[in-house]
């Protein structure tokens, strides 16, 4: 490997403060400035071994305004919401909520790898819920696979068949009855996107 002579200095003017402000305003994210950088989150996280930046590093970078690095980090998609970090954090930071908030920013700004399943699933999930009020795992998985890794459908079918044979695949949507479904849709619309 040949050495790279690109300077990796971060200039102050490259930093963006708005991300920290947004996280601070998120329920559960208000304590990010209490972080001791002790690494309890990373040490506890079952997924941290796969992360490019550990939760600790992400929080450090959010505080300092390294927005681009944070939003482009693969780590935020790896969080499986197991809350191990949240219950152990000595600073009382709800790390899981911070990770959710970072996912929201990335999805909102459209910054994630093309055909990347996590945000696609989240968006499909939301779409299905808005139309039926409930989810159907079969169609959810199907749509996600089609939009991300259609080839996987080929390897998944034996499993699907087994599930079908055992009566565990429901091919019809499980909708909330009409008037209630309509009212749910109105509620979701009225609470709206971020104000």
């Amino acid at each position: 490997m040949s050495p790279s002579f690109q300077p990796s200095v971060k200039y102050q003017k490259q930093l963006k403060r708005d991300l920290a402000a947004e996280i601070l305003a998120t329920p559960g994210g208000e304590k990010i400035y209490s972080c001791l950088q002790c690494g309890t989150c990373g040490g506890s996280c079952p997924l941290s071994g796969y992360m490019d930046f550990t939760p600790r590093q992400l929080i450090g970078m959010v505080r300092e305004g390294f927005k681009q690095e944070v939003i482009e980090s693969f780590s935020i998609w790896l969080c499986a919401s197991c809350y191990e970090c949240t219950v152990r954090c000595p600073a009382g930071i709800h790390v899981t909520d911070v990770m959710y908030a970072l996912k929201r920013v990335a999805i909102r700004e459209g910054i994630y790898p093309r055909r990347f399943p996590v945000p696609v699933l989240a968006k499909e999930f939301m779409r299905m819920l808005k139309s039926t009020g409930r989810t159907n795992e079969f169609w959810l998985a199907f749509k996600m696979l089609v939009k991300t890794t259609p080839l996987k459908l080929l390897t998944m079918w034996p499993l699907g068949l087994q599930m079908l044979r055992r009566g565990r695949l429901c091919l019809t949507f499980n909708r909330i009855p009409k008037p209630a479904g309509e009212s749910l849709r109105q509620m979701l619309e009225s609470v709206g996107e971020r104000q």
């Binding site: 959710y100 929201r104 996590v118 945000p119 989240a122 968006k123 939301m126 609470v191 709206g192 971020r194």
Partner: peptide, 10 residues
Amino acid sequence: TSYIAVDEYQ
């Protein structure tokens, strides 16, 4: 755990 990744209020 998916929905909150898009919109926490909803």
